[in-house]
Design a protein around this nucleic acid. Structure first.
Lengths: 212, 212
DNA sequence: AGATAATCTTTACAGCGTTCACATAAAAAT
DNA sequence: ATTTTTATGTGAACGCTGTAAAGATTATCT
């Protein structure tokens, strides 16, 4: 009567081995961070949400920090995907494409503030830039860089200038992304005709995203 | 022989009442944050460093969060002081004064990364802008604003434009301040001739600090 | 089939934030 | 000056956390 169809079930119906616990833990952690903030994240809570004992995660991550790092890396991949999606819907005008990138970046941070904050914490002190500067060509960083070149903001033959322009743009977007969400700016947002206008205006003035 | 001159000493020589525990706790917390990072901050540790029982801080702060907030506010005051000091050593050229502000800001963040990060966390979700936008005229925000006006980056008669320019500059500086310290940029730093040049270049390209 | 490795559980420990009851000292009131 | 009130400290306790160690269970390899 109480039999279940699952493979090699225990008394309570759950198999002894989870199957893909590593992935489940990352997803659970991501959900908790987005729902309750990074400060509310506990390894035990993640294990609980995944229906597993408190010590189980240690077979997949050596640390709480290592789990957090995995969530952060996932976030950067998501960011890259979102950017590419928005670029696909966009015209071919290089300047407009740059703007779309900046706005996508800022909106991603606005929609997932805790996750974005955590992503930044992961990026800090990593060997490679988020996710990594030199290898993946569809990484968020690579997207920004090629858009910079396309818009004529950096000489394609000057590697240093390219990196500098890309970094400047990224820094500007980061600043707007993190601070733009502050409640203190609410009056200013309405004064300039809405949140989106506010972000566009900041990105424009923060000139790293437009030709001089 | 073992007598001490302190008022109403206990057996161990320390008076029962600390005298200015609130201040001592803030300083101890600040020291721990700067030395070991914000993640290493524990209320018990702060109490220990102040030579007081674990429950004592609760007579001065309702929360660990409230102590952290006090440290953050102190940080903003320090930042404002540093800016004014640097401005005092600077010429009267409005553009140069703006640059000095930006560089001071970024260097402050570079020298106190954990504290700066914590300051940002405090600024988020506060009613007033850090430390507060409208009242203190020697606040860091007010300094940036008046420098913006002086440099002709905002029409003095257009309040919205003023706030927009100030906010854009602040966002740009924030981005450079937080990301500029990343180890990933080390090769780029040397490529442009040193850290300071790197920051100056980023702030310049991030046009919020220079006339268009 | 048997051995080995991977995965999960149980148990345990020290440290954390916080609360409560109580001790002490300072300030205010009588 | 004594009493009362208030401010500020201590101590013990609770449930939570991250993490480690040892044992149970299942998958994989030979």
């Amino acid at each position: 009567m109480t039999d279940t169809i699952e493979p090699t079930t225990a008394a309570d119906g759950r198999p002894y081995h989870h199957g893909d616990l590593r992935h489940a833990l990352i997803q659970a952690a991501r959900a908790i961070i987005i729902r309750d903030g990074a400060q509310a994240l506990s390894l035990r809570g993640v294990a609980r949400e995944a229906g597993v004992s408190p010590a189980a995660p240690y077979h997949h991550f050596k640390d709480k920090q290592e789990l957090v790092l995995a969530v952060g890396q996932l976030g950067f991949e998501e960011l890259g995907i979102v950017m590419e999606q928005e670029l696909a819907k966009c015209s071919d005008d290089p300047q407009e494409r740059l703007t779309v990138i900046g706005v996508s970046y800022v909106l991603f941070a606005r929609d997932n503030p805790a996750l974005y904050r955590l992503m930044y914490d992961c990026a800090r002190n990593m060997e490679a830039l988020p996710p990594d500067v030199h290898e993946k060509d569809h990484s968020a960083y690579a997207i920004v860089r090629s858009a910079m070149i396309a818009a004529g903001l950096a000489d394609p033959d000057d590697p240093v200038a390219i990196e500098l322009a890309t970094t400047a743009g990224w820094c500007a977007a980061h600043g707007v992304a993190e601070m733009g969400g502050f409640a203190q700016f609410d009056p200013l947002k309405t004064a300039v005709g809405g949140e989106l206008n506010f972000y566009r205006e900041l990105l424009k003035r923060t000139g790293a995203f437009s030709a001089r």
